[in-house]
Amino acid sequence: MDPAVERHRLELVARERSGHTAVVEDNLLYVWGGYMSVADDEVFLPNDEIWVYDLERGVWEVYHMTGEAPPSMSGTCSCSLNGHMYIFGGCDDNGQTNQIYCVDLTDGKYMWKKIVHEIGSAPSPRDKLSCWVYKGRIIYFGGYGHKQLTDIDSRNRSFIVDEASWVEDVFWGWNNEVHIFDPIKASWSEPQTHGRAPAPRAAHASATIGGRGYICGGRVMETRTIDVHCLDLESWMWSEIIPGSSTPVGRSWHTLTTVSENTLFLFGGLSVDCKPMSDGWLLDVETKNWREVEHPYKNKPRLWHTACPGKDSDVIVFGGSCDYILLVDTGHCNDALVFQMQPYPLFRLCEDYIAKNVRSCEMLKNQLPLLPPKLLTAVEMRMSFYRPSKKQTS
């Protein structure tokens, strides 16, 4: 794998954080929420600011948000759909929530809207869940949260009670429920799934390939797993992917990102022995084989970070913690790590070569004004990405 690119700038950099949410839209990385450490306290990041990272120029900007803003929180589940970022669930100062909000990322106003459903019932409050987007709908899976005793059906195992956490008739625990939200109809529904469902879990990872939703690992009661399950989003049939002999160790708070028509990229997480991880693995869902991959960030373990698909099959990892955050809550990060997962097309290779070398090559510098306007603009943006930071030039 070719060397990836890491940006550290002193001009403006998003605040370090874990448990945040992020999406990529039009080559811009949008980051919202999460929490950081201030002295001995855990502090939620402001709910009225969104950080935007230009993946072409390597520049951060922060924008003020208005409207019906969600509470400041961590562990919410986000996705991008039709130019909007939707978030559901999460944990704020009052505990887990089951509200859904959206914000238009395309109009430059960044105005939050709280969505009130008109049909169906919202899932119970939860955080550390995941979702898939398919045919204009958002499909949520799992998470950790609470239910009333009257809402717990002892005949099925879709909700496992956390024996260490309950108050009178309110019980906390893990679930493996599947819920569908339709933004057009403002409706919630719960499909009847078939096959053997994954065990209830939270802090797992998910990704979508075509009409199939995948989940991997996570916290299942008192252990962390690396099992992989697939849900057919048409037939609602569950199946488990049984891999070959070489597999990653069990983990939670990791990420899973689609990088090709049959390949998923796993990065980081917290292992079964509570070790922050920095390994990267590719899973071929057709052959059902895992393969560990080399990358330049082996010295940068991450957990409760985000990972988003970018241009040319890049994966953009942002933030997270490099420590076991349940014990030492000081290692939150704010760097953006760009993983190259596929060979770049010729245009990208040329663009990057010029941008990297134009300052040191007199011939390139003299020929730069001769480029067609559109190409010149693209190259100048990449030059901004590769320019030395103030720290490097001081």
Results as ranks from 00 to 15, higher is better:
residue 308 C to Y: 05
residue 188 W to I: 00
residue 99 Q to A: 10
residue 140 Y to F: 15
residue 327 L to P: 03
residue 83 G to T: 04
residue 284 D to A: 01
residue 386 Y to N: 03
residue 45 L to F: 10
residue 107 D to W: 09
residue 135 K to S: 12
residue 296 P to W: 06
residue 283 L to F: 09
residue 357 N to S: 08
residue 174 W to V: 05
residue 206 S to G: 05
residue 228 V to D: 09
residue 90 G to T: 03
residue 218 G to F: 06
residue 325 I to G: 05
residue 355 A to L: 03
residue 307 A to H: 08
residue 158 S to W: 10
residue 278 S to P: 04
residue 49 E to Y: 11
residue 71 P to G: 02
residue 223 T to G: 08
residue 57 R to A: 08
residue 77 C to L: 00
residue 324 Y to T: 14
residue 67 G to A: 04
residue 373 P to C: 04
residue 126 R to D: 00
residue 363 M to H: 14
residue 333 C to A: 08
residue 197 A to V: 11
residue 336 A to I: 07
residue 46 P to A: 05
residue 145 G to S: 05
residue 92 D to A: 07
residue 323 D to F: 14
residue 94 N to A: 09
residue 160 I to N: 00
residue 336 A to F: 11
residue 359 R to V: 00
residue 252 S to P: 00
residue 119 I to N: 14
residue 74 S to H: 13
residue 300 K to I: 13
residue 75 G to T: 04
residue 157 R to L: 12
residue 29 L to M: 09
residue 164 A to R: 13
residue 3 P to Y: 12
residue 76 T to K: 13
residue 279 D to I: 05
residue 292 E to Q: 14
residue 256 L to D: 00
residue 46 P to T: 10
residue 281 W to L: 09
residue 182 D to L: 09
residue 123 P to S: 08
residue 112 W to T: 11
residue 314 D to W: 09
residue 183 P to C: 08
residue 155 R to C: 14
residue 43 V to Q: 06
residue 44 F to N: 03
residue 259 V to M: 00
residue 17 R to T: 06
residue 228 V to E: 11
residue 287 T to Y: 13
residue 261 E to A: 01
residue 224 R to G: 01
residue 25 E to D: 04
residue 194 H to G: 02
residue 365 K to V: 06
residue 265 F to Y: 08
residue 133 V to K: 02
residue 56 E to R: 15
residue 3 P to N: 13
residue 244 G to F: 10
residue 271 S to Y: 02
residue 3 P to G: 07
residue 378 A to D: 10
residue 212 R to Y: 09
residue 209 I to H: 03
residue 356 K to G: 02
residue 285 V to Q: 02
residue 3 P to V: 02
residue 254 H to V: 03
residue 27 N to S: 11
residue 313 S to L: 09
residue 17 R to M: 01
residue 282 L to S: 04
residue 214 Y to L: 11
residue 344 Y to V: 01
residue 366 N to L: 12
